[in-house]
């Protein structure tokens, strides 16, 4: 004989895995985001800057040798300048004898700076060489693995957190609304089962779904095309993962307590989670956003889930990094589920 908890969990799991639309939105849809963003950003940083040149000489040859720029020749100054004006070229080097002039586009300060530094550096180096003197200051460059991540490294924890958040919210809100409307809630209230059993079994199904999501997601991101590399402390993300589910499950309960129809619930869930995912840096890093936006971002549970997942899945942080995300997510869960329990009604009227 099955216990009420086991048989309710089984009934809900069957209901979930037999619904093809839900399966698509839970498992395939977030992966589509990963694939699209992963491929979109996979070449970023490897793009070489283009530079135009008019005339020839040792400076242009040295620029070619750096490998940092792709030098394109123009026959006349006007033709090259036109390209710069159109925004197709960040800079144009004009060489007349020993005189080197760099024309650069004013709109793109960052690239103009790079181009300017490069051309200047090459020219100075040639000057030193031409003077026949040994350089007084030696310069050497070595590569350091920096903490700013390859695209796939921040995309995976971000999109995964978003995918889990949205499925936890929907997984809590939609059954609640549809069961109230279809009187399944009344049926449960008329049976000798406790609210804890009903909620617990729903939560178990949501967690199971999230585990499947996470495994599938990390597996796809680890394919050579995307090249995700998990850090050694990835397992510390498990508490963040579980508390994140709880936080969004409680948001779903609140949505389900307020909304009377499935349409309203699914609209409300999207309005809550989608802007939150942008503000929390699920798809794009939030570091470049203005300060006030980052402040807003810091009160969102998804931001802390994102950060926590990123810290352990890819940044390899230690135990001490658990405190903030776990505390925020737990606090969020307690407050929101308390409100939800106050707003909740068994019946529509």
């Amino acid at each position: 004989m099955n216990s009420p908890f086991k048989s309710l969990s089984l009934a809900m799991a069957k209901g979930f895995f037999r619904e093809k639309t839900t399966l698509f939105f839970t498992f395939v849809f977030p992966l589509m985001f990963l694939v699209v963003f992963g491929l979109l950003f996979s070449d970023s940083g490897t793009d070489r800057i283009k530079l135009g040149s008019v005339g020839d000489g040792p400076v242009v040859a040295a620029l070619r040798e750096t490998g940092a720029v792709e030098v394109e020749r123009y026959d006349t100054l006007d033709a090259g300048l036109a390209e710069v004006r159109d925004g197709d070229l960040p800079g144009l080097v004009e060489v007349t004898g020993d005189r080197v002039v760099l024309h650069f586009a004013a709109s793109d300060q960052a690239r103009a700076g790079t181009v300017r530094g490069l051309v200047q550096g090459v020219t100075q180096e040639l000057n030193v060489a031409a003077s026949g003197q040994p350089p007084k200051f030696a310069f050497a460059a070595t590569q350091v693995e920096d903490s700013s991540l390859k695209a796939i490294q921040y995309l995976t924890p971000g999109i995964l957190s978003w995918g889990i958040a949205i499925s936890a919210v929907f997984g809590a809100a939609l059954p609640l609304v549809s069961w109230r409307r279809k009187q399944v809630l009344r049926k449960l209230r008329l049976a000798p089962v406790s609210t804890t059993t009903v909620l617990g079994s729903r939560l178990l199904v949501t967690i199971t779904v999230a585990i499947v999501q996470a495994v599938l997601f990390v597996a796809v991101a680890s394919l050579p095309v995307f090249g995700l590399a998990l850090s050694g402390t990835w397992w510390l993300s498990i508490p963040v993962f579980l508390l994140g589910i709880l936080a969004f499950f409680s948001i779903g309960m609140l949505v389900g307590a307020f909304c009377k129809t499935e349409e309203a619930a699914s609209g409300a869930a999207n309005i809550l989670v989608l802007p939150m995912s942008f503000l929390s840096g699920s798809f794009f890093p939030i570091e470049n956003a203005p300060g006030w936006l980052q402040a807003v971002s810091n009160i969102l549970p998804l931001r802390h889930m994102n950060d926590g997942m990123t810290d352990f899945l890819v940044r390899g942080k230690g135990f001490e990094a658990l405190l903030v995300p776990c505390a925020v997510l737990l606090g969020f869960t307690l407050v929101v589920s308390f409100i939800a329990s106050k707003v909740f009604t068994w019946e529509d009227n």
Binding site: K14, G15, V184, R186
Partner: peptide, 13 residues
């Protein structure tokens, strides 16, 4: 035992 609307079922079972 209470019989409810004919829709008071679990999904897809």
């Amino acid at each position: 035992g209470v019989q409810l609307q004919a829709s008071a079922f679990f999904e897809k079972l």
